[in-house]
Design a binder for these strands. Structure first.
Lengths: 198, 198
DNA sequence: ATCAGAACGTCTAATATTTTTACACTACAG
DNA sequence: CTGTAGTGTAAAAATATTAGACGTTCTGAT
């Protein structure tokens, strides 16, 4: 079985940690559990963590989730590329939104469904593993930028920090490789309303 | 006042559309409202829309939000770069998570607070306007990739679709510009567990 | 309707980057 | 011990980017 690296589980309920460890040991090569979020920083500095499962409701935070949000931000700050999946006992829409907007990869509620949890964790890791080539990344970013400038290539080039000529080159080169034009139909359709708020 | 382009509001309650129009006319140069989501595709093909405000609970969908989710996906598919802000009368955590994971830019609940709504819409547009230079994008992507490969530069170069030498060049060039190394401490700290699941 | 300014599309020569190929060195697993 | 994989470096050839320029087309304002 292809294992999914190291997972770090943070929850102040040690019973949950034990249950989680037992559940996830078959999926991950290493399961680290800590009950005191103060240890997150140290642990993540010492170990190579592939994913974090973080409880949002610590005793101190009196269930507002702010405590968890604080730790989420702390993790994101020091390890922006490590996905964090949140757990909460309270289905609070604001907390979910805040969590995801603060960079959480996903969100599950307690009590949890074992299969769903494992599936979500796998999904997150499978997802982030999709590293694309520089060319593809570049192509996508160029497309986005041109789109954003409503087709104004001069301004797009400026934003991208390259010359207009280079942008032409790249469009020709990158665009032809996959037989789709980098110029969106945005331009052809309606090019009259440019420069509105750029 | 610097206006924020064109907003498209989709809600099957025309009273809400009127209220929204009145509220948002001062912030946006153009406010388009439609009560039938079937018209979304046509409208977005004809007009250049900068942001969409989409209701999630249409009469047909019997308040599961699936109807709204469907339209969200439809919009995202045809206009991946146009931000969509969701509206729902029911604080459903799953719907929020699903919405955000399907690419919604933000989420508000009815009844809404006028100031909050305007602020959120502005935030979304301000956010997406932060187009970074190709170099910065490249740097970030390279950092992410090296991180993902746990420091294996040969493999990172391979994934990026460039030669190892070019990766060295880029690291030197891009890294020096901002006086921070592209090589994360990940490598120095723990280089023994490579190739686990690459 | 006209005019100025902005953007387009294209070109060149001077720079710069990337690729290719190569070599020596280290770490480590069998 | 030996083969494999990764590192760090180098030089020449092949490509790509830049700066600068030119005439054309589009667009908004008068």
């Amino acid at each position: 079985m292809n294992k999914y690296g190291t997972i770090l589980i943070v929850d102040d309920n040690t019973a949950i940690l034990t249950a989680m460890r037992y559940l996830l040991e078959t999926t991950f090569t290493q399961v680290l559990t800590i009950s005191n979020p103060d240890d997150i920083t140290k642990t993540m500095a010492q170990e190579t963590i592939d994913i974090v499962l973080l409880d949002m409701n610590f005793a101190l935070g009196v269930n507002t989730g702010n405590e968890g949000l604080f730790w989420l931000r702390s993790i994101r700050k020091q390890h922006p590329q490590t996905p964090v999946v949140l757990m909460t006992a309270y289905a609070d829409i604001n907390l979910a939104v805040k969590g995801l907007k603060n960079g959480a990869a996903d969100f599950i509620t307690k009590p949890w469904d074992n299969d769903e949890l494992v599936r979500k964790l796998k999904d997150v890791l499978d997802m982030q593993n999709e590293i694309v080539s520089l060319d593809e990344m570049e192509k996508e970013h160029i497309r986005r930028t041109i789109d954003h400038c409503h087709g104004n290539l001069t301004r797009a080039a400026e934003l991208l920090g390259i010359t207009r000529q280079t942008l032409y080159n790249k469009m020709k080169r990158l665009g032809s490789e996959s037989h789709e034009s980098l110029l969106s139909n945005d331009r052809a359709a309606k090019d009259s309303d440019k420069d509105k708020r750029l």
